[in-house]
Amino acid sequence: MSPTPHNPQYDPTSHLRLTPEDIEAPQRVTRLRELGLGENPVPEFDEFARELARITGAPYAMVNFIDENRQYFAGLYTPDEHQAGVELGPAPEAPQPGRVMARDHGYCPHVVVRRKALVLEDVCDYPRFAGNPVVDEIGIRSYLGAPLIDRTGMALGTICVVAQEPRPWGRQGLDTIKSMAARLVDQIHRRETDGL
């Protein structure tokens, strides 16, 4: 696919691909509906996000499900635990993350499409990621995320942590985020088995 000004997946000024093409999105939406996920907060996922933030030492943690147009944080932990249900967007002061974010914001869509964990100790060190809207709009400088690979083989979404300053996540951070993702997938499967 060549970069063109009419293709919204490319930044016309730099021709860097900002949001990856996600051909699994329609099937993911169907699977998320089967699981009853991606439309409402899940208290146990909020608790999971809290634990993820504690373990990694990150100020923000999310359990994120992604459809064709948006990301939904069914689990969310923020420093003041203000968990608003509004869309995240530009604001004159530093905004708090809400439950909904556009699909072209952040790094989780990359994790879902590549189906691998992503470690960005300083997003500004990576030209491909430095131009993401979350850098300027909410000051994100560091990201650590892993995909939630369902028993069907589908990447349902991600778990991630972010910080507003560079963080040396290292190999330990990568191992932690991957093991926590596997743990949450087991929890999702238990919910499915229990009919939740």
Score class of each variant (00 low, 15 high):
E87N: 10
F45G: 11
N132G: 02
L174D: 14
P90L: 05
A53D: 03
P95M: 05
I149C: 04
F73A: 15
C108P: 08
Y60D: 05
R151Y: 01
E39I: 05
V185K: 14
R115M: 06
P3A: 15
V119Y: 03
Q172V: 14
I149D: 09
V100E: 12
R183P: 00
F48S: 03
G106A: 09
T193F: 10
A163I: 09
L32H: 04
P79A: 08
D125W: 01
D80R: 11
P79S: 07
V100M: 14
G195R: 03
R31N: 05
I55D: 03
A84L: 10
Y72S: 02
M154L: 15
E68K: 10
V135N: 09
R151V: 06
R167W: 12
L156I: 02
V135Q: 06
R17Q: 10
I177F: 00
R33I: 06
P43Y: 06
E24N: 11
M154R: 12
P168G: 01
H15A: 03
H82V: 13
V123N: 11
H105M: 12
E47Q: 15
P147D: 11
D136Y: 03
P43F: 05
L174G: 08
L37A: 11
I55F: 02
L76P: 04
A49T: 05
R191F: 12
N7Y: 07
D11C: 12
A74C: 14
A182Y: 00
G89D: 06
A146G: 12
L35R: 04
P168E: 12
R70E: 10
F129G: 04
C108R: 03
I23W: 07
V119M: 09
N132E: 04
R28W: 02
V119N: 04
M1L: 09
I159A: 07
D136P: 00
R28F: 01
E192L: 09
G85Y: 07
E44C: 04
A94W: 00
I188Q: 13
R50I: 04
T152R: 07
E192D: 09
L156Q: 01
G89A: 13
R114Y: 08
V161M: 09
G57K: 11
G38N: 10
P3N: 08
G170C: 02
E47C: 06
Q83I: 07
M1A: 15
H15D: 13
R28G: 06
M154I: 10
D150I: 05
T152F: 02
I66S: 01
R191A: 15
D125E: 14
A53E: 05
K178Q: 15
Q187I: 02
Y72P: 03
V86I: 13
